[in-house]
Design a protein around this nucleic acid. Structure first.
Lengths: 197, 197
DNA sequence: CAGATTCTGGACCGATCAGTCCAGAATAAT
DNA sequence: ATTATTCTGGACTGATCGGTCCAGAATCTG
């Protein structure tokens, strides 16, 4: 009775996300968005609504897939110290790769939009807390199995790791080189071995 | 022989910086800039050139004054462990204050512009390295006077502290509350006590 | 005073912005 | 073939963008 949808909405969403991720929200213009998604103006608005609607959609998509890409080790069954190391290792690798200057999409939105957009703020907080909760669990497991000698508050450690990794991601935007990122990562991880408090 | 300049260029520069700082580069429009600086369109262009010229000028200004505001303890004579603590304490206080969501202007520029603007990238790198060098010196002094028991590479520790503080500043944009920021700061500083490596 | 400079305010520019709308082509199910 | 839906492309809007320019008022020095 009706024509079937021809374009892959999911794919278009991903293309749009990549553009927002790479260039930020403000500087990604609608015409660039159209080119990237290969959608006509009409189809674009029909599918996604306003530019900001789309941003929120891409943010949700990122949290539910891409973020879990680099953070994937943390979400494994019985993840412990080795998975934290893998997580941080992924961040270094990402910071050194061709598109490393993109950083983390959530952090980008936090920097650019969260201070002036309540909805983005809420989404970004959710993402941050999701990672934090996951880290608490993994660190707690590491403390139990002995791979995390530091007996301090798992929550505080999780908050620290989350923040420090965000810092590492941000630093990567200035392309400081492998040595710098590795220094940061190594010292960050050394906290897990600290038994002095 | 000629009329004297009536407006305070330095003051206007500061007002412009505050706007860029608060709202980012792209979303700070020229008309807002004019309102903030209280300059006529003509005087504005005469004094500062293009919007991007002004951005670079404000960035330079920030590095030479405001950044050294919060980081001021580090630049004191014979700064050591207590000054590092004061530095981090300043960051927490700033993150909790009314304008804490502004974060660090250098980091904001790093996030928004550095990936796509070579000049901003260069300026931001300079700023980062300046802080890094300062931290190396202070940490080294702390290692000598015993206030920093960690005997690891002062350079690596400096890079770590710089990155972690950047992370803390970024986190503050989501207004996570005092407890979170203090957790991050406390664990970060605990690294200086770590003697296990 | 005269002459030099700075300031203001607004006209003006072309470009682009995000977003709306529609006519018509394409494609489906009945 | 009919009908319903989707798609395309472009026309169009009003607003705003960053930036240029100029005429005239204001303010200084000599």
């Amino acid at each position: 009775m009706a024509r079937t949808r021809e374009f892959d909405e999911e794919l278009a969403l991903e293309k749009a996300m990549l553009l927002f991720w790479e260039r930020g929200y403000e500087s990604a213009s609608l015409s660039e968005l159209l080119k990237a998604t290969e959608l006509s103006r009409s189809s674009f608005y029909e599918a996604f609504g306003t530019k900001r609607d789309l941003l929120l959609a891409t943010l949700a998509r990122y949290v539910n897939s891409d973020m879990c890409g680099l953070a994937e080790p943390l979400f494994r069954e019985r993840a412990s110290r080795p998975e934290i190391e893998a997580f941080v290792g992924n961040m270094i690798a990402h910071g050194l790769c061709e598109h490393g200057q993109r950083g983390c999409f959530v952090n980008n939105c936090m920097a650019e939009l969260a201070p002036h957009d309540e909805e983005v703020l809420a989404a970004v907080r959710m993402a941050r807390q999701g990672l934090e909760r996951c880290l608490v669990e993994v660190i707690g497991r590491g403390q139990k199995d002995g791979s995390v000698p530091n007996r301090g508050s798992a929550l505080a450690l999780a908050r620290f790791i989350g923040s420090s990794v965000a810092g590492l991601n941000l630093m990567a935007k200035s392309r400081p080189g492998k040595a710098v990122l590795e220094d940061i990562a190594r010292v960050t991880l050394s906290v897990l071995d600290n038994t002095s408090n």
